[in-house]
Amino acid sequence: MRYMTAQSASAAAMALAEEPGKSRVLAGGTDLLVQMKAGNLTVDLVVDIKHIPGIRDIVPEAGGFRIGAAVANAELREHAGVCQQWPGVIEAAGLIGSTQVQGRSTIAGNLCNGSPAADSVPALVAADAVVRVAGPDGTHDVPVLDIPAGPGKTTLNKAQIVTSILLPARPARSGDAYLRFIPRTEMDIAVASAAVNLTLDATGTVTAARVALGAVAPKVVLVEAAAKAIIGTKLEDAALSALAQACEAACNPIDDKRGTIAFRTSTAGVLARRAAKIAYDRAQGSANAGASK
C-alpha cells in the first residue's frame, strides 16, 4: 500500500485516476481503517485529503454553510452557526460513533462509505444538501440524494472525491430533526432512522417538508408521500399517522443481526413521527428540542 497526502483536490483526483489498483480516500478513516483491519479490503493507494487547503473549513455561503469534506464531526458540532441553522443535521452527525470517532469522522466520509444506515445521510437528504465533487474533469455539484447507490456503493467514480457539502439557506420558521433507533444508547449502527425537515407558515401550517429514512432500504429513501402527508397540516394526529404509514410503505428493509423487517418498518414510522414533532417544535422556535442525545 502507498500513502500520499494530497495538496489539492485535483492532485488527489489525479492520483486516484492513475492508480491501477484499488484506491481509497482517507478523511477521518473511521470506516476505511476498520475495513482494512477486517482484511476484506486490500488497498493499493490511500490518498489523505486532510491537507488540501480549505477542506477542513466551514464557511457561510448563500445563507447556508459549506462544510469541507475533512471537517471532523466534533468540529462541526462546535460550529454555532450550523448548530443553530441545521440542528437535525448536527444531531445526525453527532450520532456517528463514539466521542473518539467524532474526533475523526466526517459527514462526507459517512456519505461516501455508502452504508444504508449512515446517520448523517438522511438528515442531509432531508436538508437537500448539495455535494461538491472534484474529479480530473473539474468540479460539479450533485444533490446528496444522488450519491448513494446501494450498500457500500456510490455513484462517484474512482477518481472523484467529495470536497465539500453545502447546507443551503432556509426560510424562516424552519426546523429539522433526526432520530435513529439503536439497541443501546450509543455505539451501534442505526437499525432504522428518520430525518424530517420542514417549514411552517405564520399559522403553524407545514408548507414544505422533506422526509428521509435510513437503514430501511439499500440506500437512503426520500419519502415524498410522507412529506405530502404533513404539508398543509399542523401535524395533527391524523397527519402524523399518515406520515408514519407513508414511511412504512416506503421501507424495503432486510432481516439481519441488527433488526427484522417488521421491526425496521414499524420503527421507521415511529421515528418519522417523533422527528416530525421535534422539527415542528424547532420550526416554531420552541425550546422543546428533544434530541436523542
Binding site: P183, R184, T185, E186, M187, D188, D256, K257, R258
Partner: peptide
C-alpha cells in the same frame, strides 16, 4: 458467527 465484534456484540456502555 455473525457478530464477532464489540459493534454488534453489544455489551452495555456507560450511557446505557
Amino acid at each position: 458467527l455473525q457478530n464477532p465484534g464489540f459493534l454488534d456484540y453489544r455489551i452495555p456502555v456507560a450511557s446505557d
